[in-house]
Amino acid sequence: MRIQLETDGGFALIPGLSRPLTVDTKELRPVDAAELSRLVEDAGFFARPTSGGEAPAGAADVRRFTLSVVAGARRHTVSFSDPVTDPHLAALRDFVRTHARGG
């Protein structure tokens, strides 16, 4: 399984912090790979709509996150914005940030 996080928007576009972050279970410790699989499962990720929430009207400087997961023949992408109130999406976003190479 491979998961990618893209972050766009925010108070500034910082080139070095705007690169997509990727995590591949093949490169994770088994315990972390199992956790990622569980987070994707718990989130019901593949059944989610592609938009997980838009920024409120009149909002500015909010971030937009895009999570893409590829697992065998299955692939799906979900985008969502600040403020992130869905704990499942927040957990997946934070997992990628913590475990991505160079992240």
Partner: peptide, 13 residues
Amino acid sequence: YGKRYDNAFWNGQ
């Protein structure tokens, strides 16, 4: 707001 959150934003309110 959030953990190690590196942003500030206006949510319209």
